[in-house]
Amino acid sequence: MPHHLMNLRYVPDDEADEIRDLFEANHVRYYETPPSRWGISMGGFWVHDDDEAERARQLLAEYQRARHQTQREAFLEQQARGETGPWALLRRHPLRTLAACLAILVIAGFSLLPFLRLG
C-alpha cells in the first residue's frame, strides 16, 4: 500500500529539489505526483514499502528541523536589515503595492456606497 510522505502544495521549488536530493542521496525508492493546476489534487512524495516509509519519514523530519532553523535565521537577518514588512514591500515594488492599495480602496468604496446613500 502506498504511503504519502509529504504534500507538495505550496512547497517552494528549492525545498522540493532539496528533498529529492535527500531521497536520492539516501537511496530512498520514492515516486512523486505533481499537484494539479486547479488545486484539486495535492501531489506529493510517496513510497510503497512500510520500512522505506519509516526511514523516509525520519529523513524528512531531520531535514524539516534543519530547514526550519536556517529559514528562521534568514528571516531574522532580513528583519534586522529592515527587509521585511509593508515598508520594505513598498520600497521593493512601489507600483504594485500602490496599485493594490488603490484597488482595495476602490472595492471598499463600491461596497460601502449603498450604505452611504441611505443617510
Rank of each mutant, 00 (worst) to 15 (best):
L60Q: 09
R67C: 06
A25I: 09
L59V: 01
Q71L: 11
V11L: 12
E24Y: 05
A53D: 02
V28W: 05
A16Q: 03
R57N: 08
S111F: 15
A56N: 05
I107C: 13
Q64K: 14
T70L: 04
S36M: 10
A25L: 09
H93Q: 07
R117N: 13
Y63N: 08
E15S: 04
D14A: 02
I19G: 01
D17I: 01
H27R: 07
C101A: 12
D13P: 04
R81Q: 01
I40R: 06
I107S: 02
P86I: 11
L98Q: 05
E83H: 11
H3N: 02
A103T: 02
W87N: 12
L118S: 12
L90H: 09
Y31E: 10
L116N: 08
F23D: 00
Q64I: 14
Q78S: 08
F115Y: 00
M42F: 13
R29C: 07
A100K: 07
D13T: 10
R9G: 06
Q64M: 13
L89V: 04
R55Y: 12
E24K: 10
G85S: 02
L118Y: 12
E18F: 06
M42N: 15
N26E: 09
L76D: 12
L105T: 10
P34C: 10
T33K: 10
E62H: 01
N7L: 08
R65W: 00
N7S: 13
A53C: 02
R81I: 08
W46K: 05
L22Q: 09
T33M: 11
L116W: 03
P2G: 15
I104C: 09
F115R: 15
E24L: 14
F45P: 01
E32T: 13
E77D: 02
I19L: 03
A88C: 13
N7M: 08
D51P: 05
G109S: 12
G43M: 05
G85V: 00
F110Y: 04
L95F: 13
Q71K: 15
D49N: 06
A53E: 01
L95D: 11
E15F: 00
D49Q: 04
G85Y: 09
P2R: 15
S111E: 07
T70I: 04
Q58W: 02
M1V: 08
V11E: 08
A25S: 04
G43R: 03
P12F: 02
H27K: 07
C101R: 06
A108L: 09
H48L: 15
R81T: 00
D49M: 02
R37H: 09
R20N: 15
Q58V: 12
G44W: 00
P35L: 07
Q64R: 10
H48Y: 01
F110L: 14
H68L: 10
L59Q: 05
L118E: 11
E77Y: 01
V47A: 05
Y30S: 01
Y63E: 07
L59H: 00
L113M: 09
R65M: 03
Y10H: 11
T97C: 05
Q78G: 04
H4Q: 14
D21H: 00
E54W: 04
L90Y: 11
R57Q: 11
E52C: 06
V11I: 15
Q78V: 05
D51I: 15
F45V: 12
G82C: 08
Q69L: 00
T97V: 13
L60I: 06
H4K: 09
Q71S: 13
W46D: 11
E62K: 00
R72H: 11
G119K: 14
A100I: 14
A53R: 02
Q64C: 11
R92S: 01
